[in-house]
């Protein structure tokens, strides 16, 4: 038992590396704070262009969405971080993570918003334009609010996945929470920092993951 505590809940090791973990947590939070709005905006833009576009535009956008969704996000990150410098484009690890997460989740959010807009009955748009609203007003004031309410479960679920995925920054030397914990583990020869990082992730994300579960259950019950 004592051995277990020394290994996995070693307070000496923890107090030594505590500043490292806090700094990592800040970077994780700032990655999330930049990547999430970027991806939401990208996805929304794709869905809006889709709903204004003609047949060809729509086809192309579906191809783009599927293409972005099919890439494992780590493959995108490696291409961006290790591939682009050969073209003379050298992104820092922060920018690379944002770009990879942003592109990948533009696909996911795009598909979610698109499906939400497609699920609103045609009568809504017709009624709104009969009332004299412009096409843009119809979309933003009438269709979008209803669509978002319909897809709130996958929307929040995907946002949570995005925040979790910021941890892949660890693989391009971004000193976010996971990477800091690895560094700390190697400095102290003790896995306590790793478990502490896992605990921080859990405490931080658990309320959101409960929220997603509740939203999913509600969406299923409505079907």
């Amino acid at each position: 038992m004592q051995e277990l505590i020394d290994n996995f809940a070693n307070l000496d090791s923890l107090s030594e590396v505590y500043p490292l973990l806090v700094q990592g947590l800040w970077i994780t939070l700032s990655l999330a704070a930049v990547a999430l709005p970027t991806a939401l905006a990208g996805g929304l833009a794709v869905a809006l262009v889709y709903s204004f576009g003609g047949k060809v535009t729509r086809r192309l956008l579906i191809v783009l969405i599927d293409f972005l969704r099919a890439f494992p996000v780590l493959v995108l990150l490696v291409l961006v971080f290790y591939g682009l410098p050969f073209l003379g484009i050298r992104l820092g690890s922060f920018a690379a993570v944002i770009l990879a997460l942003g592109l990948n989740n533009t696909g996911y959010f795009g598909e979610i918003f698109r499906a939400g807009l497609a699920s609103i009955p045609r009568g809504q748009a017709e009624a709104a334009s009969a009332l004299g609203l412009s096409r843009f007003q119809v979309l933003v004031l009438v269709l979008l609010p209803q669509a978002v309410r319909k897809v709130i479960a996958p929307l929040v679920g995907n946002a949570l996945e995005l925040v979790k995925t910021t941890s892949i920054g660890a693989l391009v030397a971004m000193p976010e929470l996971l990477r800091s914990a690895r560094v700390a583990q190697e400095q102290t020869y003790n896995p306590t920092p790793l478990l502490a990082a896992a605990l921080i992730y859990f405490v931080l994300l658990w309320p959101f993951s409960r929220w997603v579960a509740v939203l999913e259950r509600r969406a299923l019950a409505r079907q």
């Binding site: 910021t166 941890s167 790793l194 896992a198 992730y201 859990f202």
Partner: peptide, 18 residues
Amino acid sequence: DVFRTLPQLVIIIVLYFA
């Protein structure tokens, strides 16, 4: 709850290094 909440890479790293 644990496996829905923790990032996948964190689980891999903890299993492998801890």
